Measured scan of single mutants.
Amino acid sequence: GYRKEQERLGIPYDPIQWSTDQVLHWVVWVMKEFSMTDIDLTTLNISGRELCSLNQEDFFQRVPRGEILWSHLELLRKY
């Protein structure tokens, strides 16, 4: 899972600490993992702090059909 990727690349476990690059890395990883092609990366060119401050409605406004990303983010925030 993504935890291995975080360990390998030194990405903080807590998404709130992610840099913009780390947010984009996570988005690309999830897209590959779940064979998603319809995500516009430019809408998530934000820091982890900004990402974690979005509520579900705001998130889906930025990322239509972003349910998998949202669920994955929720999982990461719990651990």
Rank of each mutant, 00 (worst) to 15 (best):
K4F: 09
G66M: 00
E67L: 06
S35N: 14
W26F: 04
Q6L: 15
L75F: 08
V63L: 11
L51M: 08
G66A: 13
E33I: 02
W29G: 02
Q22P: 00
L75G: 09
K4Y: 10
G48W: 01
I68L: 12
R77E: 05
I68P: 15
V27C: 11
C52P: 00
I46H: 01
R8K: 13
G10R: 10
D58A: 12
L41K: 10
N55A: 11
K32A: 08
F59E: 00
Q17W: 10
D38T: 10
L9W: 13
L76M: 10
Q17T: 13
M31N: 07
Q61P: 02
I16P: 04
K32C: 07
R3Y: 07
H25F: 07
Q56D: 06
T37C: 12
G48P: 03
S47P: 12
V23R: 03
G66E: 01
I39F: 14
L69E: 01
P15R: 03
G10E: 10
G1R: 15
N45F: 05
V27M: 09
N45H: 14
V30H: 08
P64M: 00
T43C: 14
W18H: 00
L44D: 00
Q56H: 12
S35F: 04
R62Q: 09
C52A: 06
K4S: 13
I68C: 11
Q61M: 13
G1Q: 12
N45G: 10
E57F: 11
Q61D: 08
L24D: 07
Y13M: 14
L76E: 04
I39W: 08
W18I: 01
L54K: 03
Q61R: 14
Y13Q: 12
F60Q: 11
L41W: 09
V63A: 11
R65Y: 12
R77G: 04
V28A: 14
L44P: 01
T20G: 11
T43W: 09
W70A: 02
Q56S: 12
E33M: 05
D14S: 07
V23M: 01
V23P: 01
E33P: 06
L44I: 08
W29D: 03
I11D: 01
V27K: 04
I16N: 10
E5P: 00
W26Q: 01
T20Q: 12
F59Q: 03
I46V: 09
W18E: 01
Q6Y: 03
D21L: 04
H25I: 08
V30I: 10
E7C: 04
Y79V: 10
E7F: 06
L54F: 12
N55G: 13
D21K: 13
K4P: 05
Q17I: 06
D14E: 08
L41Q: 09
T20V: 13
L76C: 09
L44C: 05
P15S: 02
S19C: 04
L75Y: 14
N55F: 03
R62S: 08
P64V: 04
L9M: 14
G10F: 06
L69K: 00
R3W: 10
P12Y: 03
F60D: 04
G48R: 00
L76R: 03
G1H: 15
I11P: 01
R3A: 06
L75K: 09
D38W: 08
W29T: 04
I46M: 15
F59A: 02
K32R: 13
T37S: 11
W70L: 04
V28G: 13
S53M: 09
T42D: 14
L73G: 01
L51D: 02
M31Y: 05
C52Q: 03
D40W: 00
E7I: 08
S53N: 12
G48E: 00
T43S: 14
L51T: 02
L76Q: 04
Q22V: 00
S19F: 01
W70C: 02
P64F: 03
L44T: 03
V30C: 14
P64D: 02
T43Q: 13
Q17C: 09
Y79Q: 14
V30R: 03
T43L: 14
R77A: 03
H25E: 04
W29I: 00
H25D: 07
L73I: 04
K78V: 10
P12G: 03
I68V: 13
R62H: 07
H25A: 06
S35K: 13
Q22F: 02
D21V: 07
T42K: 09
S19M: 01
R77S: 05
L75C: 12
E50G: 03
K78A: 14
I16K: 13
E57N: 07
L24M: 14
K32F: 04
E7M: 10
L54I: 08
R3M: 08
S53C: 11
I39N: 11
R77K: 14
G1A: 10
Q22H: 11
I68F: 11
F34A: 12
V30T: 14
L51E: 02
P64E: 06
F34S: 11
H72W: 00
L9P: 02
Q17F: 06
S71N: 09
F59M: 04
W18M: 00
G48V: 01
P64W: 03
E33D: 15
Q56T: 09
K32W: 04
Y13A: 10
N55I: 06
V63F: 15
S47D: 11
S47N: 12
P64C: 05
V23Q: 01
H72Q: 15
T42G: 13
P64I: 03
I39K: 06
I46T: 03
S35W: 05
K32T: 14
F59L: 04
H25Y: 14
L9T: 09
T43P: 14
N45S: 13
K78E: 12
L69S: 01
G10L: 08
E57S: 12
T42E: 12
P64H: 08
W18Q: 00
F59R: 03
S47V: 04
M36S: 09
H25G: 07
F60M: 15
S47M: 04
D14Q: 05
G10Q: 14
D21N: 12
V30A: 12
D38M: 05
L51G: 01
D14I: 00
R65N: 11
D14W: 03
L73E: 02
H25K: 05
T20S: 15
R62T: 07
K32I: 03
Y2F: 07
Y79M: 05
W18N: 08
T42M: 11
M36Q: 10
W70T: 00
G66Q: 02
P64R: 05
D38C: 13
L75S: 15
I68E: 12
Q61H: 11
W70Q: 01
I68N: 07
V27A: 14
R3H: 10
S47H: 06
V28C: 15
N55M: 05
V63K: 01
W29R: 01
Q56E: 13
I16S: 14
L54M: 14
W29F: 06
I11L: 07
F34C: 11
S19E: 05
M31D: 02
V30Q: 05
M31S: 09
S53R: 11
V27T: 06
D40E: 09
V63C: 14
N45P: 04
L24I: 10
F34T: 11
W70E: 02
R49Q: 13
N55W: 02
G66K: 02
W70H: 04
Q6H: 01
S19G: 05
L73K: 04
R65S: 13
Q56C: 08
E50F: 07
T37G: 14
S35Y: 07
Q6I: 15
G48K: 00
R77Y: 04
S53V: 05
L75E: 15
K78G: 15
W18V: 01
E57Q: 12
L24A: 10
Q56R: 14
V23W: 00
E74I: 05
H72G: 04
Q17A: 11
L24H: 15
G10Y: 05
E50Q: 14
V28E: 12
R62D: 02
I39H: 11
P15D: 01
S35Q: 14
I16Y: 15
P12I: 01
E57R: 10
L51P: 02
C52M: 11
L9H: 10
R8E: 11
L44Y: 03
E5M: 05
F60N: 07
E57L: 10
N45L: 07
T20A: 15
F34Q: 13
L44G: 03
I11F: 06
S19H: 10
E74R: 11
D38R: 08
Q6V: 11
Q61V: 14
I11G: 02
L24R: 13
G48Q: 00
V28H: 13
E74S: 12
